[in-house]
Design a protein around this nucleic acid. Structure first.
Length: 673
DNA sequence: CACTGCTGTCATCGG
DNA sequence: CCCCGATGACAGCAG
């Protein structure tokens, strides 16, 4: 989807899920053996696959398959490749997920090397295999290092030979088939070995190098100089290395499978191998301790030299939004540089962990000018508009005043640039967005008392941000007409989000009313809100129907008009041909009149006929009329006249030629007196 | 400042 | 009788 922006700005929508869907469809096709054009034989086992997929993932297949154009070719792999090693690789080719165990990792590695599997970087194996073979890790080393040291060492660990792979004595021997590794990496995983991220806590390890989530769903603005990335919930830094692994929770919610959800949650990873390694050890350590990771644990591995390693969702404390949130990446810090200082956001997790502290640090490393404070208002508006396209509910909140009345003035400038994002956070259907939902809940839990409404009510744990939103809307605009008579809005605090009121079914609504002991005032407010909300939606539907109706009616009008024109054209054509026929008949008649006796009544009738307006193609005439077909008349065998009916008054269709011939014959054989 | 389009709300009707 | 959706009418707002 591209729309022309003002001036030279070009906006491009890039789907975050398209490539994922494509790959998933390919996998489905493979499972159904549809459109498979190659059979790979490994150790007498056959695997059907798509040559294009294989060729795109494997250098070996590329060279072998691109030299053959015939369909349904069969590729027999040499003995070096085993089923044990090939099958996970094939799976990887179609799912971007590599399932492996301690037992088969070596075999997979060997086969991957032989087949030249791209995206499965050597370094990943260099990292993984030692983990399985002799355990150990580098966390202790790494932890003690500064960021810059980490960076330099990391590059060595990544790019250097395997003997440099730092290992410590820490026993990291994973439990046999006891670890699940779910990791996400950026697109750059294909090119960069440092995007091999890592998390484990289950039986089988799954290394997810999906490039599918890698590409941000983004609006590229201004001939590529600036990007507005919805996946980052906001514009990206033009200068930032856009880590494609960042996935917008908005768009990734379309994923359905657990794997995908995990992926979505963890896709904000621009992993690096050290952080990966470190995290790996933490995972194992946590397993040993049989306790959930502390926020500190999570955080240390999360931010490493400009990259962010995302833990598997299952490991996260459910309310720890920061772990879910791709906005915590350094790459997206520019997006939040203004927000980070806003109490509602920055306070997330501030009570009990250091996640945001760390982020603040990284945020501060980016000056506002690196962000998009210089973004033109036009571009912002377009961005907002595009965002609204994805999240229509947003529209209702975009123009509302900020719900936060205590925004740090020092960051007000930046914050204003993200006002729409704040609305996203707090006003626009948080349930639609896992991140926002968590943000909201976390916000409620951790920043209680920061918002005015919370201060007023003292019910911070229950007060919905949407409530406060609504309140602020009215508070900031006391004579707001839309609030109309519902002044109680100011006073009513509800133990549930107002948004729920209109979205829930009636039964659930009643149950909730029953469950929550509401005051009459609250009850009235809630019912009023629900009624208005429903009516609002109904009005929108109604108007849309109207517009659709108008649209279809216009289409019908166009169609009917063209039909009318066609019919008029046909009519004109018929008129012209009728004229031709008349002229021909007239000529014939003239000839007959000169050659025979013109006194015949039949000829006069013919002349009248020719000059009449009767349709030329047909003629209704009484058959076997004594005047036209006398009993003594000799009708030629090839006459157009049908056999005379015995009844004598049959009406039949006769062509003008038949009529003419008949009349002429009659005139010759039976001259008029 | 008038006009227009959009949107929310209210009143009403019918299922 | 109540609820709900549809719809006309009206008002406010923004461009």
């Amino acid at each position: 989807m591209s729309v022309d922006g003002p001036r030279t700005s070009v906006f491009t929508f890039q789907s975050a899920v398209h490539s994922h869907h494509v790959l998933r469809s390919l996998e489905e096709l493979r499972q159904k053996e549809l459109l498979c054009d190659v059979t790979v034989e490994v150790e007498r086992r056959s695997f059907r696959a798509h040559s294009s997929v294989l060729a795109s993932c494997s250098h070996y297949f590329y060279t072998r398959l691109t030299n053959h154009s015939r369909p349904n070719l069969s590729v027999s792999l040499p003995d070096e490749v085993t089923v044990e090693g090939f099958e996970p690789l094939l799976q990887f080719a179609y799912t971007a997920k590599l399932h492996f165990t301690k037992e088969n990792i070596l075999e997979i590695h060997r086969c991957a090397e032989f087949l030249g599997f791209q995206n499965l970087d050597k370094a990943c194996f260099e990292f993984l295999i030692p983990k399985f073979s002799d355990g150990g890790g580098t966390s202790k080393k790494v932890k003690g290092k500064s960021k810059s040291q980490e960076s330099s060492k990391k590059s060595q660990a990544i790019c250097g030979p395997s003997d440099q792979n730092p290992q410590t004595g820490e026993d990291l021997e994973p439990q046999d088939a006891g670890t699940v590794m779910q990791a996400a990496s950026a697109t750059s995983s294909a090119e960069s070995p440092k995007d091999c991220p890592p998390i484990s806590n289950g039986k089988e390890m799954q290394l997810d190098l999906s490039p599918l989530y890698a590409r941000s769903s983004s609006y590229h603005m201004g001939d590529g100089q600036e990007q507005f990335c919805l996946q980052n919930c906001g514009p990206q830094l033009p200068s930032s290395s856009v880590v494609a692994g960042e996935v917008c929770p908005f768009l990734s919610t379309s994923s359905t499978s657990d794997d995908e959800k995990l992926h979505s949650a963890g896709a904000g990873c621009g992993g690096d191998i050290l952080a990966m390694e470190e995290q790996f050890q933490k995972e194992l350590a946590m397993e040993v301790r049989c306790e959930p990771p502390t926020d500190k644990d999570l955080n240390i591995a999360s931010i490493t030299d400009g990259h962010f390693d995302q833990l598997e969702g299952s490991l996260m404390p459910p309310t720890n939004c920061s772990q879910l949130c791709p906005l915590n990446t350094v790459e997206s810090s520019g997006v939040l540089d203004g927000i980070s200082s806003a109490p509602d956001i920055s306070s997330i997790g501030a009570d009990d962990n250091q996640v945001f502290d760390s982020n603040k640090q990284t945020f501060s490393e980016l000056s506002p000018k690196d962000g998009f404070t210089e973004r033109s208002t036009v571009e912002r508006e377009v961005a907002e508009h595009l965002a609204k396209g994805f999240w229509p509910d947003l529209s209702s909140t975009l123009n509302e005043p900020l719900p936060l009345d205590s925004i740090d003035q020092s960051s007000a400038g930046n914050g204003s640039d993200f006002h729409w994002l704040k609305h996203l956070d707090l006003g626009a259907a948080p349930d639609d967005c896992p991140f926002l939902r968590d943000l909201s809940s976390t916000d409620r839990q951790t920043s209680g008392g920061h918002t005015q409404s919370n201060e007023d009510t003292g019910d911070s744990s229950c007060m919905s941000p949407i409530n406060s939103m609504e309140n602020s809307e009215c508070e900031s605009d006391g004579d707001c007409a839309q609030c109309g008579g519902s002044e109680p809005v100011k006073e009513v605090d509800l133990p549930f989000p107002v948004e729920q009121i209109s979205s829930m079914t009636r039964r659930a609504f009643l149950q909730m009313l029953k469950r929550e002991k509401l005051t009459p005032e609250q009850l009235e407010f809630v019912q009023d809100v629900r009624r208005r909300s429903k009516n609002r939606v109904a009005a929108q539907r109604c108007r849309k129907r109207k517009l659709d109706c108008i649209y279809w009616l216009e289409g019908d009008i166009k169609k009917l008009r063209s039909e009318k024109e066609k019919l008029l054209h046909d009519r004109n054509q018929l008129k012209l041909s009728l004229e031709d026929v008349r002229q021909n008949l007239s000529g014939l008649c003239q000839n007959l009149c000169t050659d025979t006796s013109p006194q015949s009544e039949q000829l006069q009738a013919l002349a009248r006929y020719v000059s009449s307006d009767c349709p030329a193609s047909i003629l209704l005439t009484p058959m076997a009329s004594p005047s036209l077909a006398g009993p003594d008349r000799d009708v030629p065998a090839n006459t157009f006249l049908p056999d005379p009916s015995p009844e004598g008054d049959t009406v039949a269709l006769r062509s003008p030629a038949a009529f003419l011939q008949d009349t002429a014959q009659s005139a010759v054989t039976d001259p008029a007196p």
